[in-house]
Design a binder for these strands. Structure first.
Lengths: 327, 327
DNA sequence: CTGAAAGCGCTTACAG
DNA sequence: CTGAAAGCGCTTACAG
């Protein structure tokens, strides 16, 4: 039914070993023999079974991609780049998404049963023990958008503090001093860093947040919190949001109240998702460099696969201020 | 290093066969023995190697998920539901996305080398030979959002014609008779069906499209084409778009020209992506039932896996008109 | 219900 | 450079 190396060997009059070598980069086999085997194989429609190949000790070529939901704009965008980067290296993404909250360890452990060559984690938080276990099994982890203190894991992450500094500087230079903050999921790494960055940047100007609110990184959440901020007795003159989605919601809130953006209220986000550039919004934000994030994550993963003992590396990517109309 | 069945067998004083049986649903093994093995296994951190399991003839539990880009809103949304549905059934999605245009066959063939148990195809068009080859290898295909004439493949697809009929009926009942159409990617199945549905629905009212334009299913594309339509000498009084993204762009175009939506120009889309409900848009559209699509796709796949000979089934899902503000 | 043995399709020392 | 053989970690008839 399925064409195997055996069939090809027979058709080519060589051993199964030779067939295997023909498909193995750098194996010692006569060049013309390899050519002949390869062409016979393709005629027969033979392709080495990756499962068998994985079993006999070589890599499976599978890379686990760990996401929460993949339908929020930033995640979808990152996933797109990451899966392309993985495919570009001849590997395959095994998508691990929407696992129940807090079950990352179990889910990753399960992924290990597929002998993934590595994992790129863009959601949740990896425990030290799991990271070590993965490494021991030859399936190193790279974290994206999060950095674990005291856990030796490669990571690539946007310089959130710098991004907030850029935004605050822009706002303050425009004369805004009543700057409110709508943070995202409280425990999320990006949220913690962005909020800390905001506080530090503000204090550099002798300021404090005008008000602080928490939403869930969603458009609707941002809208609700912004409504609360904008209907308070003393209104802020600017709202900084923990991500773009919430900022889009905040713009809608301002409009609903008949407030001019940015005249009466400046609004800015973080990430620069595609929708930020859509006409009704023209959101001023900071660009979280997704393509570079994906590229670096794969570089780190491959280097770690090649040399499990190299020192761990944390790459900080520089965000870029994108000024549109909302601030 | 890695804990194997051998280690568990030794620790439990049983054979490797027994360990295997303990992990195999319905295998004949004494219940108390199974319990003991399972608990020892979990203490040792043993989990059957899925790769080895796949090799020895059983299923790998892998389901290929074939997408184009996954970052467009509708695709991201569908992917989310599909990957959840797959995980809910204890299987894993192998994501196959962003393959070069027209290379679906090659990509799917490659996925086969991972012995996927099946594939859900939500992009491109599967050739008859590939569909047959997949089936022969025990990896059946289910197509989502597309139906292949003359190719025996299970499929689940929204009733596009009905959706267009609902939209046209709404517009006409509101007195709109100059209805323009912005179609999506010309060859796309959904586009072909929606456009045909539009023509038929219009002719039912004795109408023809006021004008026809083609974009690429993107927000920007929709905006450009709508600008052209709305600056023509004779303006339409409604624009129907092949998907929501283009309709969002069309709304922006109308605004840019200072045209009231829906007063001066009604605009409607197709799919009901999350952004359709965002405040600046409040897009009237037709809901493409994504959750049900995912559920049906998995049902079809599992039934096909169980019985490769059952008659092929095409499920048509009923779209639902969602009236918001834009039309 | 249980264990010894063959086999899944490949890779990789090993000996030549 | 090449082939015969062992082995990857599991499952599954087979015989008991």
């Amino acid at each position: 039914m399925r064409v195997t190396a055996h069939d090809v060997a027979e058709a080519a009059g060589v051993s199964r070993s030779a067939v295997s070598r023909a498909f193995t980069e750098g194996a010692s086999i006569a060049p013309e023999k390899r050519q002949r085997i390869l062409s016979i194989a393709s005629m027969l429609g033979y392709q080495p079974n990756r499962i068998a190949r994985g079993l006999s000790g070589r890599r499976t070529g599978l890379v686990a991609l760990v996401f929460g939901r993949v339908s929020s704009p930033y995640e979808a965008w990152l996933l797109d780049h990451l899966s392309q980067a993985i495919r570009a290296r001849g590997k395959w993404p095994l998508l691990l998404s929407a696992f129940p909250e807090g079950e990352l360890d179990g889910a990753l452990a399960h992924a290990l049963s597929y002998q993934v060559d590595g994992a790129i984690v863009a959601a949740g938080s990896v425990s030290r023990t799991l990271a070590e276990r993965c490494a021991a099994l030859g399936a190193p982890i790279v974290m994206v958008g999060r950095i674990l203190d005291g856990v030796a894991v490669d990571a690539v992450c946007c310089d959130n503090a710098l991004g907030m500094r850029q935004l605050v500087e822009l706002l303050v230079s425009e004369g805004r001093h009543r700057i409110a903050w709508i943070g995202g999921k409280a425990e999320a790494f990006s949220n913690v860093e962005r909020q800390a960055g905001l506080l530090e940047a503000l204090s550099g100007w002798g300021l404090e947040p005008w008000a602080r609110r928490v939403a869930d990184y969603s458009v609707e959440g941002g809208m609700l919190q912004a409504l609360a901020l904008l209907t308070a007795d003393e209104r802020p003159d600017a709202i900084l949001c923990g991500n773009d989605a919430m900022a889009l919601g905040a713009i809608s809130a301002a409009r609903r109240l008949g407030l001019g953006v940015p005249e009466e209220i400046a609004i800015a986000g973080f990430d620069d998702i595609p929708a930020a550039a859509w006409e009704p919004y023209l959101l001023t934000t900071v660009c979280n460099p997704v393509a570079e994030t994906a590229a670096q994550a794969l570089r780190l993963l491959e280097q770690r696969i090649d040399d499990g003992a190299r020192p761990h590396e944390v790459v900080r990517l520089t965000p870029r201020l994108v000024r549109r109309r909302s601030a």
